[in-house]
Every structure is written in structure tokens, then in C-alpha cells.
Simulated scan of single mutants.
Amino acid sequence: MLVDLSSGQVLFSREAERRFMPASITKVMTAFLAFELIDGGKLSPGQSYMMSENAYREWYGKGSRMFLDRSEPVTVETLLLGITSVSANDAAVVLAEGAAGSVDNWVAMMNAKAREIGMTDSHFGTPNGWMDEGRTFTTANDLAVLAREMITRHPDLYRFYFGREGMTYRGIAQANHDPITGRVKGADGIKTGFTNQAGYGFLGSAERDGRRLIMVAATAPTPRDRNDASVAMMEWGFDAFDTRKLYARGGYVGEALVQEGARSTVPLVAAGSIHATFPEGVKATPRLTIRYEGPLEAPLEEGERVAELEIAVEGAPPSRVPLLTGEAVPQANTWQRLVNGVVGLFR
């Protein structure tokens, strides 16, 4: 599957609703959940956790790892770098136990977060994707949703933790197996996965000139098949389509009606750079429509995701990208309610 994040358009899709085992791509959900907790003030990159005796017995020396030991505290930042750069199974378990009290609690949070963001056909049974008799599964559609939410909600954390060539911990240098970073211009991750049951998979992303693509490849029989397909798909996505920039990140798009607010409307701005995407050489004018369930109810904070911009291009299904509130709207006081009521009579 190949999606243009800047327009929301699906550029290529084959069996995107077919379930498969994501293997270590599961760790993207663990990283995303950690990002949500960090931005919510419930987790700090500087706080440290120790490897439990149970985690040591089960995960020391098992699969890809950071070689964590029970004898030293490790910061959340280091654990996340291990998860995102060298696919550390042990780091994912230590983070889960430390942040949620147990792996089971963390996994429950992963599944709740998946439902919240619209991953309608996924389930997680582990924080790291280790084989669990098929309890962990996902689809290309859902992984594209996960990548979109992680990148748009947490752009700074995404840039810091993803797209690294590898890491060195305890004097042990390990490389990132990401097949496109360094080979595709603008590529910056995201995560490979492999088990004998799952085959070889990859969730990847790259950005050029404000246009970001997300791709999913799954169940490849060899790493070379996965890697070659990933590079070819990304290059094709950038080369075979033209784009027209509609709005810059934070650019004003329109207004939404507000109920019981200090003002009757709120400006809507682009959550990221918004483009319309066309097959190369096609000249068309996109039809743009703001969609939201309204009127919105005050109070509203600045930066809330409250609407979507629908982009309709002839010959392709319409796509949607998120819109945010451009400023805060507090609840109306008594006088403002009176004024709004009078104004409403003349609308």
C-alpha cells in the first residue's frame, strides 16, 4: 500500500484489508503509545526503569535486543532509541513494565489506543511483536493509519527517534535494517519486521518538498524482495505523480461554527502541508470541502483536531486530511450568549 499523507490519497493498494502478522512492526505502536504519554505529561524521556527479574529471564538473549541487564537503570529515551533504531525486544518489554506496571497493562493500552485512532482490524498481544500464535495481527490499512497519526501528532518526536542509522549501547554497535533510509531521498524510517511465521515486512515513510508518502509491504519471502519492493514503490510514488500545494502547515483553510462560545466561529488551519495529488501530466482542479460534525461546542483549545478537508480529484476517490482549530475559543459568558442568540436570529 502507498499513501500520500499530504493529500490523504491512496496511490496504490493491493489486499490492504488482508490480515497479517506484523512481527517487529508492532513496536511502532509501542513507540506511538509512548509518544502519546510523553506529550500528555504522563511519561518523561529522562525517567529511568530497571529490567525486572522476569523480563531478564524471558528476554535476555532473545531475538533483536539492546543487551539490557538488571544491574543498571535505563532512561525512557534510550529505551525508545533501542526500539526504533535496532528493534530491541528487551527494551520494549522494560518500557512496558516500567510505564504501565506490567506487559499486560501496556498491551491493553496499545489496543485501546489502536481503537481510538481508527485501527479497526488490528490486535496486539505483545509490545514487541514476538510470535504469539497469531494473537497479534494488523492490515496495511491500519498500519497506514498508525503511521499517519504518529507523524502528524508527534512530528518532533518522530524526527528525533526514527530514521537513525543505528545505535551503540554498552559498547555494542548495531545497525538499523530500514531498507529505504539512505537509499531513497527524504526517507526517514519507519520499521521493519520479520519472523518465520510473518515473513519480511516494512512500514516506511519519506518526505520530499513537503510531500510525505507512507508505504506498507508485508509477507515478503526474502529480505531482498522486501527491500527492493520498498525502494521501487517509494521512487514510483514520487516520480509518477504530480502535486499541487494547497496549504502550508498552519495555513488558514476556513471557519467552523461554534456553539456556546465566546465567538461564533473558529478558524481552521492545516495540520500539515496539504497537497492535491495527480497522475503525472494530468491537469485538474481539485474540489475542496470542509467536513465536520457541528456546530462545535465550546470550550475549544488551539490545535484541536475538529474537522477534515475533503479533496476530490477527477478519476480518484476523495481523500481527507485533518484540520485543527487555529485559536482557542472559551465558553461564552452571559452577555456573549445573549449577543450570539440575537445574531443567530438573523442567520
Score class of each variant (00 low, 15 high):
Asp132Asn: 07
Thr192Trp: 08
Ala175Thr: 14
Ala284Asp: 08
Phe241Leu: 12
Asp228Tyr: 13
Pro267Ile: 00
Ala23Glu: 11
Val313Leu: 03
Gln47Gly: 12
Gly82His: 07
Glu133Ile: 00
Ala187Met: 06
Glu133Trp: 13
Ser6Lys: 11
Val306Asn: 06
Glu280Tyr: 13
Val86Tyr: 04
Trp236Asp: 04
Trp236Asn: 08
Val107Cys: 05
Ala88Gly: 15
Gly294Lys: 07
Tyr56Gly: 10
Gly46Ile: 05
Pro286Tyr: 07
Thr334Leu: 15
Asp228Ala: 14
Gly63Tyr: 05
Val321Asp: 10
Met150Tyr: 07
Val343Thr: 14
Pro317Tyr: 04
Ala99Gly: 08
Asn128Ser: 07
Trp335Pro: 01
Pro299Gln: 09
Glu15His: 09
Pro267Ser: 01
Val231Thr: 06
Ala108Trp: 08
Glu297Trp: 02
Ala140Cys: 06
His123Trp: 14
Leu296Ile: 04
Ile172Glu: 10
Ser7Glu: 03
Ala284Met: 04
Tyr247Ser: 01
Asn105Cys: 03
Val94Phe: 05
Gly182Met: 05
Ile83His: 00
Ser71Arg: 13
Gly186Ala: 10
Tyr169Leu: 12
Lys283Ser: 15
Tyr60Ser: 13
Val3Gln: 14
Gln336Tyr: 12
Arg65Thr: 06
Thr219Met: 14
Phe35Arg: 00
Thr334Pro: 08
Arg320Trp: 01
Glu17Thr: 13
Tyr169Ile: 09
Met109Thr: 01
Thr75Tyr: 09
Met51Cys: 05
Gly63Ile: 11
Glu293Cys: 09
Leu338Thr: 14
Ile180Tyr: 09
Glu310Trp: 03
Gly163Asn: 09
Glu207Leu: 12
Gly40Pro: 00
Arg159Cys: 04
Trp106Thr: 00
Gly261Glu: 11
Gly294Arg: 12
Thr285Ala: 10
Gln197His: 15
Thr138Ile: 00
Leu5Trp: 10
Phe346His: 11
Glu293His: 09
Arg244Val: 15
Ser64Glu: 05
Glu297Cys: 07
Pro127Glu: 11
Gln336Asn: 12
Val10Phe: 02
Gly186Asn: 00
Ile290Cys: 10
Ala114Tyr: 07
Gln197Glu: 15
Arg115Gln: 14
Gly341Met: 06
Arg135Thr: 01
Ala88His: 08
